[in-house]
């Protein structure tokens, strides 16, 4: 490889033409294949942990949905659970009142959450990060209270009972070990990931990144910011809603917990752990988060939250001043293989 005459550059890659460069940028890397093959291999390798794996897949998808709006569009949210909750309740009600086939329920729940996200998006178009934090938080609180009040419909604080989904596509029944659940959640997460991957590498995805980077300039080269933000926010809500629907369908229960502030905060933590803006952060963060929670609560059932908080603070402090925050830092070289940005 030839080194050009001036000072050696940071990226000592072979020089590609622009078209080839852009193609390579969107191309699959081998660690990505490894990641997904491992995820599917766990169906056979860890037959006793399917319930936990199912939870991880759902949390990963939820965090991925937040990554779309936070990592790509730069919209901070403290209330992303609002759309998770809409999807979860929609799936519960659909199942209870007739649409028992999970995939149809999943799609319709995604549509319902997307509709809620579309309406909510108009409130986050303008304003600073702080206003957005408050607006998203407020919307989630309102949704929580609505679900609480409509107890004739949602079961209120008792939760929605009698959610009994039928077999997936009329063929695969849910089982107690959670195997069907994991396969189902993982497959949905994978397919939605593929779509998200395609979208973030599209001209639309690039324009959303540009908006995050410099909204002022994006507007001066003819990009209308509002439409793009509405679109990506709605998409994020659809994804979140589908994650919620997966939870309902695989646990056969919905409670107000799906709309809790803690759920929004968890998604944010997961992204801090895994890093944002390269799609795998949510998935890797979800794995780390759930495993930490699982291990810590087994070690110290009463104080695990303390240790969780402690570890998070340490990790974020270590990762401070780095583009790739938090836990991601020690593993940065590994995550870069998956496409995380260079700090």
């Amino acid at each position: 490889m030839l080194q050009s005459n001036p000072a050696p550059q940071q990226d000592a890659k072979p020089v590609l033409g622009p078209a080839a460069f852009l193609k390579a940028k969107a191309a699959w890397r081998w660690p990505e294949f490894l990641f997904w093959i491992s995820a599917f291999a766990l169906i056979l390798l860890l037959p006793n942990r399917h319930l936990l794996l199912n939870e991880i897949a759902i949390l990963g998808l939820f965090a991925l949905s937040l990554d779309l709006i936070l990592g790509y569009a730069g919209i901070v949210s403290l209330g992303h659970a609002a759309f998770f909750g809409v999807g979860a309740y929609a799936a519960g009600l659909l199942t209870k009142y007739g649409v028992t086939e999970p995939v149809s329920g999943l799609v319709l729940s995604g549509v319902a959450a997307g509709f809620a996200g579309f309406l909510a998006s108009f409130m986050i178009l303008r304003g600073t990060d702080l206003t957005r934090l408050m607006v998203t938080l407020g919307v989630a609180l309102i949704f929580h209270e609505i679900a609480n009040r409509l107890d004739w419909l949602t079961g209120g604080a008792d939760g929605l009972l009698g959610v009994a989904p039928g077999p997936i596509l009329g063929r695969f029944d849910f089982d107690f070990a959670g195997t069907t659940a994991y396969v189902y959640s993982l497959t949905v997460t994978f397919l939605l990931f593929l779509a998200a991957r395609r979208i973030v590498h599209s001209p639309f995805g690039l324009s959303v990144k540009a908006l995050k980077d410099n909204r002022l300039r994006a507007a001066t080269i003819g990009i209308a910011p509002n439409r793009r933000l509405i679109a990506i926010y709605t998409l994020g809500a659809v994804y979140a809603g589908m994650a919620g629907a997966l939870l309902t369908q695989t646990t056969q229960f919905v409670s107000l917990e799906v709309l809790d502030f803690a759920r929004s905060a968890d998604a944010l933590l997961v992204l801090v752990i895994g890093g944002s803006g390269y799609l795998y952060g949510g998935l890797i963060g979800a794995i780390a988060f759930k495993l930490m929670k699982d291990t810590l609560s087994a070690m110290t059932p009463a104080y695990w939250i303390f240790w969780m908080g402690f570890i998070l603070v340490i990790l974020v402090l270590i990762g401070r001043d780095r583009r790739m925050a938090g836990l991601a830092r020690p593993f940065a070289p590994l995550l870069r293989l998956l496409g995380a940005r260079r700090p």
Partner: peptide, 26 residues
Amino acid sequence: LTPIETVSLAIAERQGTGARFWSRVG
């Protein structure tokens, strides 16, 4: 972004293909 992505944004926007979400940049 890289310069090629930067100017591509403006060109795609002008040509009316800037909102395509199912094709790849480049």
